[in-house]
Nucleic acid binder design. Structure first.
Length: 556
DNA sequence: GCCGTTTTCGGCCCGACTGTTTTCAGTCG
């Protein structure tokens, strides 16, 4: 049964290809809208399809419902297959290139007869693209740059996908009778934000039998000595087998860290006679380092106290601080978000919808904020939880926050974020963000670099200067827990902690399901050794109130 | 293609940005 995201992708692909073929733009957006409706739909899609009720979802009509139910039943769509039947597959690949869309791809294919990404890259290098009407030198350079980025990024998957895939694989591999013990290793074990291979280490008394029966579970599995390489998934999966306990821990240790770190801890080869990873550290005459901190940056930590492993967990969280509702671009009402958060153990809430400048996200006008403030008061009483009136205020191009200074003091909690004008110079962007951080109304800096992992680089920024400003102004630095962001990058956590900065770990939830994304932020925070005392979400209500009142007396 | 109805046909989100143009098309969020 296809996942919901696969259904949405199918409808999006159909829309793009129709656009490429010059279909009626409204027909195109009908497919795109149907995809959006299904993405936002909270009920059971499978059940709706089974009961022939997909058409009841707003935005899904007769035709789109037909495509979806066929796809769910057969994993295919004849409509889609017919649509792409006369287009070379290499042309379809071009839709992944950022910066060019269906119209430009059409020109590339029809006028230049280019039918693959490598062919397009070659034409760019020969300078042929710049000569075409509607294109130019800059577009040509941009296409080439994006193709190169795409080729690099193709080798990786995001943390959430790796997490789910490795959990599924672990369950499968654990069911192999000849495997006594198996653990995930490598990048997944180090809580890496992007992953290019998934590694397991297996202990098995009958090694060859275990390798053989494991290989049989997969379509494409190659045996290389004591290692199985499985190519059934978006990234390679490697399983290392051993029948020796000491070797098992050596394998776990050596496949967890990179060569750079193994060299830093002077691990030159298997250490005999160990019964655990702790034993290996003892033999290396070092104190234990948890897997997620086994990174080169660990060895640059100046304050010995910061080397302490983090015990931070989802259970430490009291405050759900940066989330959206259907007042701006979220899917759920404030009440639904609070109820869902309460069930997960959150005790106080700061709704942070988009500010008025964010028109694309239905940002709230002053009038609508005042209405939301009444709602927060009513819900506080009704649900018996503390609800703060927050905002994710856009940082305008000149560094001012959205709304007038007078009106800003109406908010209890302000996350300041950049959502526009990404292309400033490093100097201008740094000054812009520092100005926002120095604004006495700002409580937190949202997704500090604006990066989208495997998709878009962060803006040009002197991150250290920004961190300095956050620390100096008691502004919490966000670790945005959305797997596409995971921003602040964990590599900058060490510097931020050194400067005494506070952190806020937020799901940036746009639906009730998103709240649990907080977990990915926790995994990232643990890489930097962050303790719960450094995270404002883990404060008690009293401590959080104290944090809010640290600067100015609010109007509330 | 979907929706809604003043129900079987007409309207469908749009502004910013970029790079290409010489007044605008394509892409993105």
């Amino acid at each position: 049964m296809p996942e919901k995201s696969e259904i949405v992708d199918l409808l999006d692909n159909i829309a793009s290809i129709m656009e490429f073929k010059g279909e009626n733009p409204f027909k195109v957006s009908a497919f795109r809208n149907a995809g959006n409706s299904i993405r936002k739909f909270e009920g059971d899609i499978e059940e709706m399809a089974g009961a022939n009720r997909l058409g009841e979802i707003k935005g899904v009509g007769k035709e789109t419902a037909k495509v979806v139910s066929e796809f769910m039943l057969t994993g295919n769509s004849i409509f889609y297959q017919e649509l792409i039947s006369d287009i070379p597959s290499g042309v379809l690949d071009m839709f992944e290139i950022r910066g060019i869309g269906p119209k430009k791809i059409n020109v590339i294919y029809k006028e230049l007869n280019i039918i693959s990404i490598p062919g397009l890259a070659a034409a760019c290098r020969r300078g042929e693209i710049a000569k075409v009407k509607g294109f130019g030198e800059k577009t040509q350079a941009k296409i080439l740059e994006e193709i190169e980025k795409l080729e690099r990024n193709r080798k990786f998957i995001l943390m959430d996908r790796a997490d789910k895939l490795s959990a599924k694989l672990l369950a499968t591999l654990s069911s192999v009778k000849t495997i006594d013990k198996i653990e995930v290793s490598g990048e997944v074990r180090r809580n890496m934000e992007v992953v290019q291979e998934i590694i397991f280490v297996a202990l098995c008394p009958k090694k060859n039998a275990a390798i053989k029966s494991t290989a049989e579970l997969f379509t494409s599995a190659a045996i290389d000595d004591d290692e199985l390489i499985i190519s059934d998934f978006p990234v390679p999966v490697k399983v290392f087998f051993t029948q020796d306990t000491s070797e098992y821990y050596n394998l776990l240790f050596s496949t967890t860290a990179t060569a750079e770190v193994l060299s830093a801890v002077k691990y030159t080869g298997s250490i005999a006679g160990v019964k655990s990873e702790e034993d290996i550290f003892k033999k290396l005459k070092m104190s234990y380092i948890p897997p997620e901190m086994r990174e080169p940056q660990y060895f640059t930590i100046k304050d010995a106290a910061h080397k302490k492993p983090s015990s931070l967990s989802f259970g430490d969280f009291n405050g759900l601080l940066h989330f959206h509702t259907n007042a701006s671009d979220g899917n759920n009402t404030l009440e639904e978000m609070i109820n869902a958060g309460s069930k997960l153990g959150f005790k106080f809430f700061a709704v942070c919808d988009h500010s008025q400048n964010a028109a694309y996200a239905n940002g709230l006008t002053e009038e609508r904020i005042l209405a939301q403030r009444e709602l927060t008061k009513a819900l506080s009483k009704k649900l018996n939880v503390r609800v703060y009136q927050g905002i994710e205020s856009d940082i305008l191009t000149d560094g001012r926050l959205d709304y007038s200074p007078d009106f800003l003091s109406n908010f209890d909690f302000i996350v300041a974020s950049v959502h526009s004008q990404f292309n400033l110079s490093e100097t201008d962007m740094t000054a812009r963000i520092i100005k926002a951080v120095e604004n006495p109304n700002t409580d937190a800096l949202g997704h500090p670099t604006g990066r989208l992992l495997l998709a878009r680089d962060g803006y040009q920024l002197n991150i250290k200067k920004v961190i300095d400003a956050c620390a100096a102004n008691s502004v919490a630095i966000e670790i945005n827990a959305n797997p596409h962001r995971l921003d602040l990058d964990w590599r900058n956590i060490f510097y931020a902690r050194e400067k005494g900065a506070m952190f806020t770990i937020n799901p940036d939830a746009h639906s009730t399901q998103d709240i649990e994304l907080t977990n990915y932020g926790v995994l990232i925070a643990r890489k930097g050794g962050i303790q719960k005392e450094e995270v404002i979400n883990c404060f008690s209500i009293q401590e959080f109130d104290k944090f809010l009142s640290r600067k100015i007396k609010r109007n509330f």
